[in-house]
């Protein structure tokens, strides 16, 4: 249990020392935790969970939250992501910010947990959607935020993504979605499962309208999110080291009773197995996406080809 507590913590960007201090001295984790407590002053600094490099939080933010030592990509909040990508750093229009989850199954403690996450993140749900400018081109974009219920997909996330896709169709704009999610939201049960079908059906319309969809998978992208819109990009991109899969590693190990390779379900593993188009470093993300959008929206280019196409006369 305590080990789990410790493991969980490593996913977060900052290492608040007060939480570490709560680990009793008698556990295995305490030694490591104790050292960390000494090394990393609260909020000011971060220790990379992979290589141990210590960063000033400010430096880390300047470096797009990528470790200078080992290039480990820390999680980004949705506002941070938008800031790092869009012209002006913000959306020109946000969609459906007022949608909030209800408790359709009457699940105990669910509303309290939602309220907590709302207070901690200043968000109403686990995704921000809207229109923005990328390299001068208009796009519709959605960014999931793993600080909110592990960005699990419930009714609101499914609905916001679906509406964003419908907006992309109406405005005839490319759609870019940054995934980061533990999967379907347990507390909304089968309604969460159905959001997979809803969002995918919306993407079939985008597809029919011949509009661009770029899916960017960030750490982690699992379960029902991985098995729906995230895998359906015209281009499927991932950040280095992002963990992506359908079933979790532990579940698979328990099922097949073998140890899995070290790189199992990493972005690089998926690339090797033909599941991704490319793995893109965060510092190159903006440029890569801008280029992709530009190549699909430059009507001039398309028309030139159409004018010269031998098919056109038929």
């Amino acid at each position: 249990m305590l080990k789990d507590l410790f493991g969980k913590k490593r996913k977060f960007a900052t290492v608040p020392s007060e939480t570490l201090a709560r680990v009793p001295a008698s556990t295995d984790a305490s030694k490591e935790a104790g050292t960390k407590e000494k090394e990393v002053p609260e909020g000011l600094m971060n220790k990379c969970p992979h290589c141990g490099t210590i960063h000033y939080s400010k430096d880390l933010e300047k470096n797009l939250r990528v470790c200078k030592g080992c290039q480990f990509h820390y999680s980004m909040s949705a506002p941070e992501r938008l800031q790092s990508l869009l012209d002006e750093g913000v959306l020109t229009e946000e969609f459906d910010a007022n949608l909030i989850a209800s408790n359709p199954l009457g699940f105990p403690d669910y509303l309290e947990k939602l309220e907590q996450d709302m207070a901690n993140t200043n968000l109403n749900e686990a995704i921000i959607t809207g229109e923005g400018l990328l390299g001068g081109n208009r796009i519709v974009i959605g960014v999931m935020d793993s600080r909110f219920r592990m960005a699990s997909m419930g009714s609101v996330v499914g609905e916001k993504i679906t509406r964003a896709i419908e907006q992309a169709i109406e405005r005839r704009l490319p759609f870019i979605l940054f995934s980061a999610s533990g999967g379907a939201r347990m507390q909304e049960g089968v309604l969460s499962l159905m959001q997979m079908a809803k969002t995918s059906a919306a993407l079939s319309r985008l597809d029919r309208e011949r509009l661009l969809f770029v899916s960017v998978m960030t750490n982690p992208t699992y379960g029902g999110v991985s098995a729906s819109f995230s895998s359906l990009g015209d281009y499927n991109i991932a950040e280095p080291g992002a963990m992506i899969g359908f079933a979790g590693r532990r579940v698979i190990e328990q099922t097949i009773r073998q140890e899995l390779p070290k790189d199992f379900q990493t972005a690089e593993f998926l690339l090797k197995n033909g599941q991704l188009d490319m793995v893109v470093h965060r510092k190159d993300m903006r440029q890569t996406l801008s280029k992709l959008v530009e190549m699909h929206t430059s009507r001039e280019g398309v028309e030139i080809w159409q004018a010269n196409s031998p098919l056109k006369s038929h």
Binding site: M196, S200, A201, A227, S228, S231, L260, N273
Partner: peptide, 26 residues
């Protein structure tokens, strides 16, 4: 449920399910 195995992940369990969802809609 879908089989949670190594080979299933390597061959794109997620993509296979996702594609069916999108295509069935059409």
């Amino acid at each position: 449920g879908a089989y949670p195995g190594k080979a299933a992940e390597e061959r794109g369990q997620s993509e296979a399910i996702a594609r069916n969802l999108r295509e069935m809609a059409t």
